[in-house]
Amino acid sequence: MRTITVSSAALPRPVRRFVSPRVLIGIGLLWLSVFFVVPVVYLLFESLNFGDGSLLANYEQALQAVYRQALYRTFGYALLTTVLTLLLGYLTAYYIAFKSSRPFLLLTLVLLPLWVAIIIRFFGVRLFFLSSGPVQQLFGTDFGIMNSRNGVILGLMSALLPFAVLPIYNSLQSIDDELIHASRTLGAGQFQTLRSVIFPLSLSGVIAATLFVFILAAGSFLAPAIMGGPSNFMMANVIEEAQSYSVSLAAAMAVVFTGSLLIVIGAFNHVANVSEVLGDL
């Protein structure tokens, strides 16, 4: 590569003086504030009712039984997805880290789908279970996947498995072989070593994976829209629907949803040190 040498002599003094790291943080904060934080806070403002009736009228509506149910469904589906994805993800990561003779290939195959737009992957899952798709052609049934909870969960697992495998694999990979050997020389069998040494030392990866998968699953719009149908809509779909007839209701639901998500993450933070894991990102 050709090297281009840049000299600052041509720059005016003030430019040189004021480009300090603190100024750079300031630029970053300003950018994210104007185009992200302020718009989201503005949504909070829009959720309040300044007309007739109570200030929180939109929230009363947003907490009606039908929307409450969508909220419960959202967290229920997210939890189910997280449990299943982590189970498969942990075993896969364990295999790649300790058993596989071709770890690089297996890891690349996990990473590969991340490059493919998520809408295409959901589309692919749907193609499988369509009446003209291979599953129905072969078995004559879609196994209750189309337009069902199971379809949503399957779609989410397909989309989110890499987010479970990668952090867990990284934490398993960074366990010193000597520690595993030490456990064996101290008399622990393979399963005992997995339980007492490997698993505790991979917890940071498990926590990160839980966080990623749960947050992404809870906020998903496409999985219910493509695989679930209206009876399996989650909060993202309900909000999208509501905004076409009442923006302030949609805004109130967005606040309720995000608030609940924060409470759930806060509770999770109580049992596992989430901020430490996030700091390591």
């Binding site: 718009p39 989201v40 993202a236 909000i239 949803f257």
Partner: peptide, 14 residues
């Protein structure tokens, strides 16, 4: 972390 539905809606309104 915030659902893209909310980010999209917020940007549209703002």
């Amino acid at each position: 972390m915030i659902s893209p539905v909310i980010v999209g809606l917020a940007l549209l309104r703002f």
